[in-house]
Amino acid sequence: MKETNLTKAVAELVEIKLKALDVIMKELIEPLADVGSPERVLGKKYEDWTEEDFLKASQIYGTSEPNALSDLIARREIAKVTEMEKEIL
């Protein structure tokens, strides 16, 4: 598409809206998303969880996936693997 003053203005407007939405997400939505997360409910960081905590978490969240617990476990485990890969490389 040929770039005109109008398309430039629209692109700029969209860009600033998206950036603003990012800020809103970060400031308002992300803290909300954390409410009711397994870490908050158990009152412990994932890294500090014991076998009992895992058991308790699965009792609270259930085992049918996907849910907040499976999502948290997947994200943390992927991060661990990535970190290990970095160290090996």
């Binding site: 909300l32 998303a33 409410v35 009711g36 397994p38 908050r40 409910v41 609270i60 969240y61």
Partner: peptide, 10 residues
């Protein structure tokens, strides 16, 4: 919805 979910889980 998050509050309800949190209350339920707690």
């Amino acid at each position: 919805s998050k509050i309800l979910e949190a209350v339920a889980k707690r």
